[in-house]
Design a protein around this nucleic acid. Sequence first.
DNA 1: TGTATTCCCGACTACATCGATGGGGATCCG
DNA 2: CGGATCCCCATCGATGTAGTCGGGAATACA
Lengths: 149, 149
Amino acid sequence: MLPGNSVAFSAKTEYGIVSLVELAAIYEQGGVLQVAEIAHRQSIPDRYLEQMLTSLRRARILRSIRGPKGGYQLARPPADITIADVVGCLEGEAAARAAASRDTPEFEVLSALQERLDQARAAILSGTSLQDLLEQRDQLAQAQAMYFI
Amino acid sequence: MLPGNSVAFSAKTEYGIVSLVELAAIYEQGGVLQVAEIAHRQSIPDRYLEQMLTSLRRARILRSIRGPKGGYQLARPPADITIADVVGCLEGEAAARAAASRDTPEFEVLSALQERLDQARAAILSGTSLQDLLEQRDQLAQAQAMYFI
DNA sequence: TGTATTCCCGACTACATCGATGGGGATCCG
DNA sequence: CGGATCCCCATCGATGTAGTCGGGAATACA
């Protein structure tokens, strides 16, 4: 009934998150990445990715630099950006609809169940930061490197 | 990316669940309810509800009786039917698609996150039976009756 | 100052899905 | 038989999603 907020992220959200993880990796050095660069590495249509990065900039999650040598960088440390922030930004527009369930007792208990689901989801999303995902990515890379010893 | 399986249930799923709760309430007496009757009480288009009940019958969650005095009833006790069963039945068709994420490390950690979300959701859905919802409905009715004393 | 590079903005399209409707058939009871 | 009820399938309109496109504005650098 509120058709954003799905368990399976939309392409918008997925593209946004993976881009942010890439940017998180270079946050310490203060580096920037360009849309085309991220899009190429992640096999995402660049003109489409542009829209997500624009939304993230408007939400103050990213900063942008124009002109040659320009690009994007995180607006604050990766540990201070949660996945809930990102999801709220990228699928917030469509999901801003009231549930408006029928008022029978059966629909009411259903709403209560939905509430529990939303809270469980929100707990995970707001308990996971870009820093967390970045660390997981690095651990993954390390684990995979082990196979080649 | 897999557009069933949303946190907010689809109308299909909502309609199915509220109907099943109604049927759960009369399971002990072995009674039946007709599509038109449920549809009217819950303000659901009856020709649409028919489709959900048909799906639930095919999934062996409901039994149907044709002809005059016909209708639907639960195929087994409400405590043995979980919401996960119902959701799996009613939004299963569309959700049966592989995630097929890109194979970059960033997409991989994202998949892992989605996995955690799915598990949290599944835990709630398979831990909630029609019996549970029915009891919540009855408690709700009782609580509301208190206001009129 | 000129020019290439990059981000910025908004319109547009193609396609799938969702909620819903409708026609006609099978089954059963009295 | 005749009406009530479930059964099956085709179709439809509205909406949203993923993606494309055409141009405009800022900036670095020669």
